[in-house]
Structures are given as structure tokens and as C-alpha cells.
């Protein structure tokens, strides 16, 4: 008989794998990995605020991430520093302030769990957040799929064909804040970016179309999450690192194929 908490962990993990598979393709294509990583870092400040205000951590992280993204866009438009410099400043400043705030709060907060994920303690509320948030992300990506793919290939071309490029860019950032907020509990702040990037990167070697790449990324993610949860449970290791290590192993196995598939 499988324990209930394992079933919950599996459901949560599979949802994260599916969301990361679709979202992750755009992260790889549009070079948003560092942005995702920075959002996740800033999320710790959100968690601290959530504890202070006694609201849901998911909600608090979403609010803080949206503020983070808006602040970033505002700074980007000033065009003084390159985006990676801005992200480097904002992300780690937010992380630092977040850690300080959590320490000063003097409440029992499982910092380790937030940093590395704790999938085996996923509760019903978290499952709801994941299901609704993750479902929303996948549906929105699905509805805008060809426009997003076209603007990724050529922005001016997309504009000429009435794609609202600026609006979709903001939309992608917004979806990213949702992905970060709902998956922190599963993979942890420090590992969300790799969750988003590794499966699509591994899938790239096998795919000849954007859709197939996303589907294979979902499959690789699901396999890695399920076996990651198994190892995490058996070896009593933190879930985030175990899942990411499994993903990395998949990537390592598939990467040599890039020589055969280079021309595709």
C-alpha cells in the first residue's frame, strides 16, 4: 500500500514537470533562465513577507515576484545597465534581505525546505495552488503558442503580423512568476531554474518541431520527477536536488545524441 503523502508528492511532481516542460521551452528559446533564477531568489523575500502578514506563501511569492519583475522592467527601460547586471543586483539583494528578514522574525521557518524543496510534505492546499496555477500557465501558453513561437523566431515579423509582442513578453514574465510561486515547495528556490532548463535542453536533441520538443520535455521531466521522488524517499535525501540530479542524468545520456541530430 502506497502512503498518501507519496501519492500527493507524485501528483505535485508530475504537475511541476508538465508546467516546466512547456514553460521551460520558452525559457531555453528566449534565454530567460537567469530571469527565472532571479525571480526564485527574490521569492525568499516574498516568503518572509507571507510569514509576517500571515498569508499564503504562494500568494506572497507571486506578489513579490510581480513587484520584482515590474521593478526590473522599469530599470531595463532606463537602459543604463545590461539585464544580467540588473538581475545580479536585484536577485541577490532580495535573497539577502529575505534571509535577514526570516532570521529576524524568529519564527520556526524551514529555510532548508524552501531552498531545496520538500516535496514529501506537500499538502492539499499546495496541490490546489499547483493544479490551478500550473493549469493556467499551460492553457495560456497553449492559446498563444504560435504567436509566441513566431515572435521568438523573429520579433519584427511577428509585429508585422499583428502579434502584440510587448504584451506577450509581459505575459511570459507573469507566467514565470506563477511557475516560480507554485513550484518552490517542490524543487526549492535554488533549483527552479534548472528544473525549467534541463528537460527542454535534453528534449532539444530529439525534437524536430517546437511542439514535440515541449512534449518530450514534459516526458523527461515526469520520468525524472517520479524517479527523483523514489530516490528521495528511499535515500532520505532532499527532493529538489534529487530530482535535479535525475534530470541532469537524463540530459547527460541524451546529450551525445546531439552529434547525430546536429542537422535537425
Amino acid at each position: 500500500m502506497i502512503e498518501l503523502f507519496i501519492i500527493k508528492a507524485l501528483i505535485a511532481g508530475v504537475i511541476v514537470a508538465l508546467v516546466a516542460g512547456f514553460m521551460g521551452c520558452f525559457v531555453v528559446w528566449r534565454r530567460m533562465a537567469y530571469f527565472g533564477d532571479s525571480l526564485a531568489h527574490s521569492a525568499l523575500l516574498g516568503i518572509a513577507l507571507g510569514v509576517m502578514l500571515n498569508i499564503s506563501h504562494n500568494l506572497a511569492v507571486m506578489i513579490s515576484s510581480i513587484c520584482f519583475a515590474a521593478f526590473l522592467v522599469w530599470l531595463q527601460r532606463k537602459k543604463v545597465f545590461a539585464t544580467d547586471t540588473l538581475l545580479g543586483i536585484l536577485a541577490h539583494a532580495a535573497l539577502a534581505v529575505g534571509v535577514i528578514t526570516i532570521t529576524l522574525l524568529e519564527q520556526r521557518i524551514d529555510l532548508h525546505g524552501y531552498l531545496f524543496g520538500d516535496i514529501l510534505t506537500v499538502g492539499n492546499e499546495q496541490l490546489w495552488w499547483l493544479g490551478i496555477g500550473g493549469g493556467f500557465v499551460i492553457i495560456v501558453l497553449f492559446l498563444n503558442w504560435s504567436s509566441l513561437v513566431l515572435m521568438t523566431i523573429h520579433e519584427d515579423l511577428a509585429m508585422a503580423e499583428n502579434v502584440r509582442v510587448a504584451r506577450l513578453e509581459i505575459l511570459l514574465m507573469f507566467l514565470m512568476t506563477i511557475v516560480v510561486a507554485v513550484s518552490i515547495k517542490i524543487v526549492g528556490i535554488l533549483l527552479i531554474a534548472s528544473m525549467l532548463v534541463i528537460a527542454p535542453a535534453a528534449a532539444r536533441q530529439l525534437a524536430r518541431s517546437p511542439e514535440v520538443m515541449a512534449i518530450i520535455a514534459c516526458l523527461i521531466g515526469t520520468i525524472s520527477v517520479v524517479s527523483g521522488i523514489y530516490f528521495s524517499f528511499e535515500l532520505d535525501t532532499p527532493s529538489g536536488p534529487t530530482i535535479v540530479a535525475t534530470l541532469a542524468a537524463c540530459f547527460a545520456v541524451l546529450f551525445p545524441l546531439s552529434n547525430f541530430y546536429r542537422k535537425t
Partner: peptide
């Protein structure tokens, strides 16, 4: 027009997009 390696897409599919 520089096409990124990371996006797998055939010419036919690109022509059909949208």
C-alpha cells in the same frame, strides 16, 4: 534573421505558423 539552434522548426512549419 538569425535562427537559434535551440528552436527546432522546419521551414514548412515556419511558413505555416499563424
Amino acid at each position: 534573421f538569425t535562427s537559434e539552434q535551440t528552436m527546432p522548426i522546419t521551414v514548412e512549419r515556419f511558413l505555416q505558423l499563424r
